[in-house]
Structures are given as C-alpha cells and as structure tokens.
Simulated assay, not measured.
Amino acid sequence: MRPTVDPAVEPALEPSTTPPQPAAAQGTARLVVFRPLKRKRCAECGAGPLSLLVLADGRPRCLGCADLGHLVYLPRGDTALTRRSREGSGLWAVVVRFNRRKSRYERQGVLVEEAALARAEERCLADAEARARRRARDAVRRAAGDERFAAAFAAEILRLFPRCPPERARRIAGHASVRGSGRVGRSAAGRALTPGAVTAAVTAAVRHGGTEYDALLMRGVPRGEARRHTAGAVEAALRVWRE
C-alpha cells in the first residue's frame, strides 16, 4: 500500500517523483515519514542532515519538531512484529523511501511507540518459543515412529531371511528407512513392508557391502554390467540367508 503524500508539497522532497495515490482513494489516512535521498535539514530547528523527516507546509521537519521524536523505528521484514506493534501503538507512521529506478515510493518500515514495540516483541517471542517446543515434540514423535518402523522392517527381514545375522538386519533396516532418503524403505511399498521392497533393501545391502560392485563402478564399469557381474554372488548370499 502506497503512503499518503500531499501532491502540492511532494516536489519539495523529490522534484522528479510522481506523487503517490491520495489517502481518500486508499480508504485510510496515515502519517508518512520519509528517508530522503538528498541531504536535508529541518526548516524549524536547523538540525541535519536528517535520516528521517516529515513534510509540513512543503518544508522538511525533523521528527522532534513534528512531535514524532518519541517513536522508535522498526524496519520491515517481520510481518507479525510490525502488525502487533501498530495495533498496540496509539501513534505510528509509515517510513518510505523513493526508488528512482522504479519511480515509486517503497515502504522501509514503521515508527511506533517504544512500549508497543516491547509488548509486540514479547508476544512474538512467546509464539517463537511455543513453535520451538512444538517442533521439539514433533521431532521426538517422528524419531519414535522411525525407530518403531525400523524395528518392524528388521523383523520382516529376519522373517524372509531367517539366517541373516540380527545385527546386520537392523543395520539394513536402519539404512533403508532413513526419513527423506528416498530409499526403498521410505517408498509406499517399503512402508507397507511388502516382501518385494524388503528383499530389494537386502539385495542392495549385499550388493554394496558383500561384492566388488562399488569397486567396479569406481573403475568406470557401467551399472548394468556391474550388476550382472555381481549377480551370482548376491544371489548366493541371499540363498544362504533364506535357508
């Protein structure tokens, strides 16, 4: 939303700018404070150069002379903090700066009462702490669910491959079921503990950990050829574990 500026006094600030839309057309009135592009001094007290100013009768005024000196600046960026600060402040103003390249004013932040900002910060901090606690609870819940799933996956490995060492089955299950890994254990079939998905996880573990498959890939052997070369060893290991 663009700030309210009187077109009659706008040229005194930036002669080359186009005045923003009047407040009546926006449906709301507001105080506007400018971050000037040029060095300006207060027409009333002579202070300057001003980092923030208010236009009054077409002439720049410092915040003190404009009776806004008690307000504090809150840069844009935190929507919730800005909204709560405005809601709790009896007096507030929009801070804008003219963008010559885009030929328009852009909002930089707001000026609000210090007490209102402090209250808003406390509310936002409480929300942040609540979100952090919720994330921690969710992480614990996910970790417990992942642990139960990995145990179920290992149990299914041992059902299909009774002679697989239990510790090896747990390692295979843990590797295949890592959340977000995209491995077979996280697929729909893997989560359903289908025999095909479980067997695929065991086969991959044997291929990578019990054959020269990885070494062949490192030597530049195509994946299909490396799989064919190690297929016999993989099947022999699975046969032993199935008996």
Results as ranks from 00 to 15, higher is better:
P15H: 03
T28F: 14
R30W: 03
L31F: 02
L31E: 05
V32P: 00
R35P: 00
P36N: 07
R41L: 07
A43M: 07
C45I: 06
A47T: 13
P49K: 05
L50F: 06
L52E: 10
A56F: 09
D57N: 14
D57R: 12
C62F: 02
G64D: 15
C65I: 07
L71F: 03
V72L: 04
L74G: 05
R76A: 14
R76C: 08
R76K: 13
R84D: 13
G88Y: 04
N99A: 12
R100Q: 09
R104W: 00
Y105K: 01
Y105E: 01
Y105N: 02
G109D: 03
L111R: 01
L111A: 03
V112F: 00
E114Y: 00
L117N: 05
L117M: 11
R119K: 12
E122W: 00
E122G: 08
E122P: 02
E122V: 08
C124A: 14
L125W: 09
A126Q: 14
D127I: 12
A130G: 10
R133Q: 14
R133Y: 00
R135M: 10
R137K: 14
R137D: 12
D138K: 11
D138L: 12
D138S: 11
A139R: 15
V140D: 13
V140S: 11
R142V: 11
G145S: 11
D146C: 07
D146V: 06
A150W: 01
A151L: 11
A152S: 14
A154R: 01
E156L: 07
F161M: 06
P162T: 08
R163K: 12
C164S: 03
C164P: 03
P165M: 05
P166A: 07
P166E: 06
E167Q: 13
R170F: 02
R171T: 11
I172M: 09
G174K: 08
A176C: 09
V178R: 14
R179L: 12
G180H: 09
S181T: 06
A188E: 15
T194G: 04
A197L: 04
A201D: 06
V206R: 03
H208A: 12
E212L: 10
Y213L: 04
R219G: 04
G220Q: 07
V221Y: 02
R227L: 10
H229Q: 13
G232R: 15
E235I: 09
A236R: 15
A237V: 14
L238T: 08
R239C: 06
R239D: 15
